[in-house]
Amino acid sequence: MSFKNSRAERSTITRDTVDLESETGNIYETIAILSKRANKINVDLKEELTQKLQEFASSTDNLEEIFENREQIEISRFYERLPKPAAMAIDELERGKLFVKSIEE
């Protein structure tokens, strides 16, 4: 999934719990599902960021390289500006891209 094109809110907004629970019928189940999805998004983002920053890793760091590495700073700033993983998970649920599979007893 491309997190760069996420339409999720970048700041906190008020949500109607009735709309959130419409998929499952239970707000607590919805929150548990959103929590699991947000954790997965967070892990994916962290892996992607770590992979991109590995390109800049070197065994010999000198002081000049640390302060002059603008590309690394820009990559870090980009990831800091992305919406929070919880907001991305809620956005996926609202747009119908998060599928909920219920296990019946």
Rank of each mutant, 00 (worst) to 15 (best):
M1V: 08
F3T: 09
K4L: 07
A8P: 11
E9I: 02
E9V: 02
R10G: 15
T12K: 10
T12N: 08
T12Y: 02
T12C: 02
T14F: 03
R15K: 14
D16H: 04
D16T: 10
V18Y: 07
V18P: 03
V18I: 12
D19W: 03
D19S: 07
L20Y: 10
L20T: 12
S22H: 12
S22P: 06
T24N: 09
T24P: 07
G25I: 11
G25W: 09
G25A: 14
N26S: 14
I27S: 08
I27F: 12
E29Q: 15
T30H: 05
T30G: 10
T30R: 06
I33C: 15
L34M: 14
K36E: 13
R37A: 08
R37Y: 01
A38Y: 02
N39P: 00
I41Y: 04
V43H: 13
D44I: 04
L49T: 14
L49I: 04
T50A: 08
Q51M: 05
K52N: 03
K52D: 11
Q54K: 15
F56W: 00
S59W: 05
S59D: 13
S59K: 09
T60A: 11
D61P: 06
D61Y: 13
N62Q: 11
L63V: 15
E65M: 04
E65F: 01
I66M: 02
E68K: 11
N69I: 07
Q72H: 08
I73W: 03
I73R: 15
I73C: 06
I73L: 13
S76D: 09
R77H: 13
R77W: 04
R81M: 11
L82N: 04
A86Q: 07
A86R: 01
A87M: 01
A89E: 09
A89C: 06
I90E: 09
D91R: 11
L93I: 01
L93E: 00
E94D: 05
E94I: 15
G96Q: 05
L98R: 13
L98V: 03
F99P: 02
I103P: 02
E105C: 00
E105L: 04
